[in-house]
Simulated scan of single mutants.
Amino acid sequence: MNKNALQAEELVSLKSIYGSQWKENDIVKNLYSINIAQDVELYITLNSSYPLEGPPSYDLLAPNLTKNVKYIITCALDEIYFDNIGGPVLFQSIERIKDIVHKEGNNKGKKDKKNNGKKKTDNNLKITGKQSNVKYNIIHGETIQDRKSIFQGHVCVVNSEEDVKNVIKLLLQNKKISQAKHNISAYRITKQNGVLLQDCDDDGEYLADGRLMQLLQKLNVMNVVVIVTRWYGGIQLGNDRFKHINNAARLALQTGGFI
């Protein structure tokens, strides 16, 4: 069976499963769409080599979903593809997106009910350093939760090792953050003379700091310090904790516009 036949067979199956929800664009070739939920529409573009070679191209029209949820969806789609290279992935991908969006809707409803009447807090925390009289704009990323553990990244512009110490000190003035199990940090600074300063601290989360540093190096982010807070939920996550730490850092860097 050639690749076009495999693709055609999958499209027939999707039409059978989803009926009128599955739509083929009349103008753009190989473009399909399906309504995932209210205000969430998934667009799928298939190239001629799919599924034997190359993943589908996804576009998600979902103005009310947070960056964190969209990032989770992207990671889920990548995971499905790499677990099924050469095979059909559209049904699994659609159902996984539905699960994530449905879960987010339930969580949002609970949060709205819980926070009804409460003032929404800003995601940016501006603190004046006591020693240097420099204002540090510490930007907080959205949280990632897994088996009762919670991860959150924080990022701030720094130009010296003293700045790094001040930012961490100021961040730990937040009682909730200071009481967390770990606050892993990494920074990279380029001095005016071209000298590169970089260091990291695992704060008891063995090997996590080195992986965080590798992320900053890979992204080529300079003159920032990233701190990832982990509130331990009592259940060991194994190597998943490293993935969540780096993803939390990435979310903070994205929120701050550094990547």
Rank of each mutant, 00 (worst) to 15 (best):
P51E: 11
A62W: 00
S132F: 07
G256D: 05
D122H: 09
N64D: 12
I245L: 11
C75V: 01
E10P: 01
K113G: 06
L77E: 06
G86T: 09
W231H: 10
Q254A: 01
E205L: 12
A37L: 03
I36C: 02
N107Y: 11
V12S: 09
C200T: 08
R211Q: 15
N247L: 11
N4R: 13
N247K: 12
N174K: 12
L90G: 06
I85C: 10
I80W: 02
D39V: 04
R211M: 14
R96T: 13
Y50H: 10
D83A: 14
V226N: 07
D26C: 05
I80L: 06
K148Y: 13
Q131P: 00
K130H: 11
D202I: 08
I27S: 13
L170T: 00
L90R: 03
Q21G: 07
V69Y: 04
V221Y: 10
D59W: 02
Y71P: 02
G257A: 11
Q131M: 12
H244G: 02
I144Q: 08
N84C: 06
R188P: 00
Y232Q: 00
Q214A: 12
N124S: 13
K15F: 14
I17Q: 14
Y50M: 12
N174V: 05
K103N: 13
K98V: 09
N84Q: 07
I127S: 04
N115C: 11
L171P: 02
S33M: 10
Q179R: 14
I227A: 10
I177P: 01
E104Y: 10
T128G: 07
P63V: 03
N84R: 03
Q179I: 07
W22H: 03
I177L: 11
N183Q: 11
A186F: 13
I85D: 10
F91A: 05
Y71F: 15
L212C: 01
G86V: 09
L77C: 11
Q198E: 14
Q152T: 06
Q198M: 11
V69P: 02
F258Y: 15
V134M: 01
F258M: 09
V40D: 14
K110Y: 12
S93V: 07
G54P: 03
V195R: 04
I189F: 01
G129E: 02
D163R: 02
